[in-house]
Amino acid sequence: MNEQKTISEIIELWKADKKLYIKKSSYSAYVLLLENHILPVFGSSMSVTEKDAQSFVFQKLEQGLSHKTVKDILIVLKMVLKFGAKHKWFDYQPLEIHFPTEREKLVIEVLSRTNQKKIMNHVKEHFTFRNLGVYICLSAGMRIGEICALTWEDINTETGIIHVRKTIQRIYNIENGIRKTELILDTPKTKHSIREIPMSRDLLRMIKPDKKIVNNSFFVLTNDAKPTEPRTYRSYYKKLMDELGMPSLKFHGLRHSFATRCIESNCDYKTVSVLLGHSNISTTLNLYVHPNMEQKKKTIEQMFKGLR
């Protein structure tokens, strides 16, 4: 056993090690979880017991954090503890943490078909590059960081393909206790997010005239060398939705709406998963594949047909 260190000291060494081989955005996310949640509770401790960790989990849930957020915090805590044990700065016993059963169902917010048509028709009639971004997201299921990072060279009107290969996000940096933000243009987090999405005929028809005259290196949403960032575009989208009298729907709801329309059109689930850039088809199934009442009735009728 080497000389014991506090969790705070181990975290500093772990950060220096981790920074060498993970993406800047991932490192930023880890540091935020450490600064906001782990260090205030465990920073001065020499070890973390299972009882301590379980109490910490219940405390965070009571504060209103989601199960997913608390699990993400726990993942980082375990990485730090394993790092400390590997260098023999303290003994580490694997933590077996229990979460209370989630009572509330995850509700996916989507646009109705009527509202989706209304938005898409509005974009056709009132074309701007920023409006085009909303249309693309409804037609291709892109994330907000991906649409903000999209340049004209990513759109091939000859093949009718959109190439998704980068994303924009604002990350937090904490250095010497000082927080600052930085806008970064980077590759998507996973290799599955780098993908090719075919354009619909309507989208292709809308884009083709502009594609002939634009600068290929310009960003689509601004048609300029400088991009717009997700926070700014989210505000623009909210204003547009308010003007159209649409129900309150987060920007990510456009992606949910695209996926839902795909499922409703009886697309095979694997294809939908690939179009969305999910790492695993189970993510797609868990989020979007839920039988509606008509499907349930049909199943019951078919069952009793066999009994008659």
Score class of each variant (00 low, 15 high):
residue 205 R to W: 06
residue 185 L to P: 01
residue 218 F to Q: 03
residue 290 H to Q: 10
residue 84 G to P: 00
residue 90 F to L: 09
residue 15 K to Y: 14
residue 131 N to I: 02
residue 305 K to Q: 14
residue 147 I to C: 05
residue 53 A to P: 01
residue 106 L to A: 09
residue 266 N to I: 00
residue 102 E to D: 12
residue 120 M to T: 11
residue 185 L to F: 03
residue 82 K to F: 10
residue 39 L to P: 03
residue 183 L to K: 07
residue 43 G to A: 11
residue 69 T to I: 04
residue 183 L to Y: 00
residue 53 A to N: 00
residue 199 M to K: 01
residue 14 W to Y: 15
residue 275 L to A: 06
residue 288 Y to F: 10
residue 121 N to M: 09
residue 212 K to Y: 12
residue 117 K to V: 13
residue 79 M to L: 14
residue 253 G to M: 05
residue 289 V to Y: 15
residue 136 I to K: 00
residue 18 K to L: 10
residue 272 V to W: 08
residue 208 K to H: 08
residue 177 G to S: 06
residue 136 I to G: 01
residue 231 R to Y: 11
residue 4 Q to E: 14
residue 30 Y to E: 10
residue 111 L to D: 02
residue 63 Q to G: 10
residue 160 G to Y: 11
residue 231 R to F: 02
residue 292 N to F: 12
residue 201 R to Q: 14
residue 72 D to K: 09
residue 48 V to L: 04
residue 174 I to S: 02
residue 291 P to Y: 01
residue 194 I to S: 14
residue 256 H to R: 08
residue 74 L to W: 03
residue 33 L to E: 10
residue 123 V to E: 03
residue 257 S to F: 08
residue 150 L to V: 02
residue 57 V to P: 02
residue 101 T to A: 14
residue 234 R to M: 06
residue 218 F to R: 00
residue 119 I to P: 00
residue 109 E to L: 13
residue 204 L to F: 09
residue 125 E to T: 11
residue 73 I to P: 01
residue 100 P to D: 06
residue 286 N to F: 01
residue 149 A to G: 11
residue 88 K to G: 00
residue 22 I to L: 10
residue 298 K to F: 12
residue 192 H to M: 12
residue 229 E to I: 15
residue 123 V to L: 07
residue 265 S to E: 12
residue 295 Q to I: 06
residue 90 F to Y: 15
residue 136 I to Q: 03
residue 108 I to L: 13
residue 234 R to F: 03
residue 288 Y to T: 04
residue 94 P to W: 12
residue 83 F to I: 03
residue 67 H to Y: 14
